[in-house]
Design a protein around this nucleic acid. Structure first.
Length: 415
RNA sequence: CGGGGUGUGGCGCAGUUGGCUAGCGCGCCGCGUUUGGGACGCGGAGGUCGGAGGUUCGAGUCCUCUCACCCCGACCA
């Protein structure tokens, strides 16, 4: 893409109404626009990052054999009444509204009810199970206070996977497979070495749930982490009793701030029972389906990645999520430079990975500062100077120095 | 939802005890000079001062109500 045609622009100054580093940088660099508190529009660069994150998650879900669907945003009150979760006492962050005929509806904040109800129409026999079904879509939660930029919004993009098993043993297997897939996802996103499986409160059908917590000062959770065992305990269940049960010692644990990027739950029959999701087993007896749910905050991950990797010059995107692989920067506008840059742009565009071509008539300093702020993994400079040396100047966003490469070396490196 | 703070061109800000055509920086437009780390000169455009009501000869400034945003706390099924 040509940067001259990108409708967004970078800003030199930080927005006055953002405190969090992720939102400040993402707004300055033109990735997101704040619509209102906790509600962000994703601009061309930001949408590319968001899609890239979702794609990694999608690939690992598909690898598990999960099937993707899209559920509705509008929620049927009657369905939620059956599980008792329409109540504002039980769930205090609903967005509720009304149809023209005064029927109450809600905006989906999670989707156990509609999916469980949906499946009751298709699942009859033990032969129909197990099933893994997921969705990636916007969810709405009426948070009392939105904060931390993309980390806690009122409207956000989330992946939720739901599992449906015949019995507890089968459920446990699925649960562990999903946990492994989660490790793989966070590793692919570059967060592997700072994301820890964390014991957290489990709800009504399991003693614990597992959170995936990424270490960052911007996080809202406090966890107690054993670096050697790579296990952590959320502050909410940090008691002597729990530590004993988990075989953890208080003096081995470090109190750290973290952001919850994933959370997996065993649900038992909490939803299948009231909503009538049953199957007939091989003995001809009707049974409730055993369920689990597995969330990953896609837009939150974008904020967490921004927080984790940014430096004092701007954003730093891991290659898998970067909006483009290469930032081609043209310095000066001599005919030879323009010609060389255009040629290279054409070649790199076909090369895959994506290239952002800074073809603007701006000073070198402005272009470099913008490139650093936007945070694309490689910066490739074309100037009179590089043409003289007949080489291409490539610098990684995180590296100190640029290297000069000939064309073959360059294309090989960027392939 | 409790406490604290902020709303002034697109962005960041200043604006004195109420006073005359509301300023500054960035950005934007035009012309020229520049071009390897946010260049420079000259000339321009752009503002219902968050909104409503009130006090006053006169309100960005004072009063009342209201909306939005930020921070701390509580909350986060």
């Amino acid at each position: 893409m040509r940067q001259s045609q990108l409708f967004t622009k970078t800003r030199r100054e930080i927005p006055a109404d953002e405190e969090s580093r992720n939102a400040q940088l993402l707004i300055r660099a033109g990735f997101v626009h704040k619509e209102m508190a906790g509600v962000y529009t994703f601009l061309p660069l930001g949408l590319r990052v968001l899609d890239n994150i979702a794609q990694v998650v999608r690939e690992e879900m598909n690898e598990l054999g999960a099937q993707e669907i899209r559920l509705t945003t509008l929620q049927d009150k009657e369905l939620w009444d059956k599980t008792g979760r329409w109540s504002d006492v039980v769930i205090d962050d609903w967005f509720k509204t009304k149809l023209a005929n005064q029927t109450e509806v809600g905006l989906g904040l999670t989707h156990e009810e509609p999916l469980t109800n949906l499946l009751s129409q298709y699942v009859n026999s033990y032969k129909d199970l197990p099933l893994l079904i997921y969705q990636i879509q916007s969810k709405f939660r009426n948070e009392l206070r939105a904060k931390s930029g993309l980390l806690r919004g009122r409207e956000f993009l989330m992946k939720d996977l739901y599992s449906f098993a015949r019995n507890q043993k089968e459920h446990d297997q699925v649960y562990n497979q999903v946990a492994k897939a989660y490790d793989k996802i966070f590793k692919r996103l570059g967060l592997g070495d700072r994301t820890y499986r964390t014991f957290a409160s489990g709800g009504s059908f399991a003693k614990f749930s597992d959170e995936f917590q990424t270490l960052t000062e911007a996080g809202e959770d406090t966890i107690y982490l054993d670096y050697d065992k790579k296990v952590a305990v959320n502050k909410e269940v940090y008691t002597d009793e729990v530590l004993k049960e988990l075989g953890l010692k208080r003096d081995q644990l470090n109190e750290v701030k973290a952001a919850e990027v994933g959370n997996i739950f065993s649900l038992g029959t909490k939803y299948s029972k009231p909503l009538g999701l049953n199957f007939v087993d091989d003995n001809g007896h009707e049974q409730n389906v055993i369920m689990g749910c597995y969330g990953i905050g896609i837009s939150r991950l974008m904020g967490v990645i921004a927080e984790c990797f940014a430096d004092d010059k701007g954003l730093v995107w891991p290659a898998v999520v970067a909006p483009f692989n290469v930032h081609l920067v043209r310095l000066g506008d001599s005919p030879a430079v323009v010609k060389a840059a255009e040629e290279l742009y054409t070649i790199l565009t076909k090369n895959g990975g994506g290239v952002l071509y800074d073809d603007r008539d701006e000073s070198a300093g402005t272009k470099f500062a913008d490139a650093d702020l936007i945070g694309i993994p490689y910066r490739l400079v074309i100037s009179d100077k590089t043409l003289e040396s007949k080489k291409y100047e490539l610098k990684s966003r995180t590296g100190r120095d640029a290297v000069l490469l000939n064309k073959d070396e360059l294309l090989k490196k960027l392939a």
